[in-house]
Computed example of a mutant assay.
Amino acid sequence: MTAPTASARPGPAVRRGPAGLSLAVLVCLALLALALFASVMSGSKQTPAADVWRVITGGGDAYLRTVVESRYPRTVLGVLTGVCLAVAGTLMQGVTRNPLA
């Protein structure tokens, strides 16, 4: 009795239509917005979400505005770092033609 062997060829690639792709992009953008908001909220002193929202919409006192606005460069630098790592990974996969690169 012999055991069935697995095929060496990979199965067909999963193809998504434009609706699936746009939904995935929207979900990723929503998660990015939540991560940005959480980054602005966190620091050496936690700032409540309502206070951060007040500063973003143009309200809040001067101290709170200064604290929240001082967190913007850290947040932007984190997003730029992620973008650079994603581009570097994509380039490595393209140059080496290795999906695990």
Results as ranks from 00 to 15, higher is better:
T5P: 02
L85G: 09
T2K: 08
T2H: 08
L32F: 02
G82C: 11
A19V: 04
T66E: 09
A24R: 09
L80H: 07
E69R: 14
V52K: 07
T2V: 06
G17E: 01
R65F: 00
L85P: 06
L23S: 06
W53P: 02
L91M: 12
F37L: 15
V25I: 12
A50Y: 01
P48F: 01
G78D: 10
V55I: 06
P18F: 02
A8I: 10
A30Y: 02
M1K: 07
L29I: 05
A24V: 04
A24W: 01
L32G: 06
L29N: 08
V25S: 01
G20C: 00
V55M: 12
Y72D: 05
V55P: 09
L32D: 09
T75N: 07
G94E: 14
S7T: 09
A8Y: 01
D51Y: 01
K45V: 05
V67N: 10
L32S: 04
A50M: 06
T5G: 08
P12M: 12
D61K: 14
T57K: 15
G89Q: 11
G89R: 14
R74C: 01
G59S: 13
T66L: 07
G60E: 07
G20D: 00
G89F: 08
L64T: 09
V55E: 12
A50N: 07
V79M: 12
L64W: 00
A62S: 05
G58H: 09
G58Q: 09
A101L: 14
R65K: 15
T57R: 15
P10K: 14
G89A: 12
P12Q: 13
Y72P: 00
G43A: 04
P18Q: 07
P48C: 05
G17C: 07
A88M: 14
A35M: 04
V79D: 07
R74A: 09
L26Q: 07
G78C: 09
C84Y: 11
L85H: 08
V76W: 07
T66A: 11
S42A: 11
V79K: 06
R16Y: 00
V76D: 05
G11E: 12
G78I: 10
L36A: 10
P99W: 13
I56M: 14
N98D: 15
G11Y: 08
L80K: 11
G11V: 07
C84F: 12
G94L: 15
I56S: 13
T47W: 03
S70L: 11
T57A: 12
V27G: 03
S22M: 05
T47R: 06
A35V: 11
V67E: 14
W53H: 12
S70V: 06
L26G: 02
G82W: 08
R74Q: 10
K45F: 02
K45P: 00
W53F: 10
L100R: 15
V40A: 06
A8D: 07
V27M: 03
V25H: 00
L34H: 01
Q93T: 01
P73I: 10
G82P: 13
C28L: 15
P4Y: 05
M41V: 04
K45Y: 03
V87H: 06
P12K: 12
L31M: 08
T81W: 13
C28P: 01
R71F: 04
S44W: 05
V40S: 00
T96H: 11
S42N: 06
R15E: 00
S7L: 12
L64Y: 01
R71D: 04
Y63T: 14
A88L: 15
V27D: 03
